[in-house]
Amino acid sequence: MTNDKANKVQPAKAAATDGPYDVIYFAKKHRISNEDARTIIEKHGANRKEADKAGRRISV
């Protein structure tokens, strides 16, 4: 039996990237208000790519 760690999926990492952002983390990441972060997360849900785009647009 081999100890092949490359093929194992770590559930904690997978769960962290599948769901929507935490409001406080997202606000700090993009240097925006918590209210703006909450609005973006509600609008884009678990789509982190689109949420990040919206966060970058507001932070400019």
Rank of each mutant, 00 (worst) to 15 (best):
N47V: 04
R31T: 13
M1I: 10
E35N: 12
I58K: 10
V60C: 03
A15G: 11
A16H: 12
G45D: 07
D36E: 15
V60D: 09
K49L: 09
I40S: 02
K13S: 05
R31K: 15
N34H: 09
D22I: 00
A14I: 01
K5R: 10
N47W: 05
D36N: 09
Y21L: 03
F26V: 02
H30F: 13
A27M: 08
T17Q: 15
D4N: 14
D4M: 11
G19R: 11
M1R: 10
Y25M: 11
R38F: 02
A16P: 05
V23G: 01
N7F: 09
I40Q: 03
E35H: 11
P20F: 08
V23L: 00
S59I: 00
A15K: 15
K8C: 05
K53N: 10
G45T: 06
Y21D: 02
G45S: 03
P11F: 08
R48H: 12
G55P: 02
I32M: 05
E35W: 07
K29H: 13
G45R: 05
H44A: 09
R38T: 03
V9M: 12
V23I: 07
A51Q: 05
H30M: 07
S59P: 04
I58N: 00
A37N: 06
E50G: 04
R48N: 07
S33H: 02
A27W: 04
A12N: 07
Y25W: 10
H44S: 03
A37T: 03
G19C: 09
R56Q: 12
A54T: 00
K5P: 00
A37W: 00
I32D: 06
D18G: 15
H44I: 01
K29T: 12
I41C: 06
T2D: 14
K49R: 09
V23D: 09
K13F: 06
A14W: 08
A12C: 01
K5F: 12
A14R: 09
H30K: 03
S33T: 15
A14H: 11
S33L: 10
T2G: 14
Y25A: 13
A46L: 03
I58W: 01
A6D: 15
G45W: 08
R31V: 05
Y25P: 00
R56N: 12
K29L: 11
D22Q: 10
V9I: 14
K13G: 07
T39C: 08
D4T: 13
E42G: 08
K8T: 12
E50A: 08
F26Y: 02
R57Q: 08
A12H: 03
E50V: 01
A12Q: 11
R48M: 06
T39W: 07
D36Y: 03
T17H: 12
E35T: 12
G45A: 06
D52S: 05
Q10A: 08
A27E: 04
V23Y: 00
N7Q: 13
H30D: 13
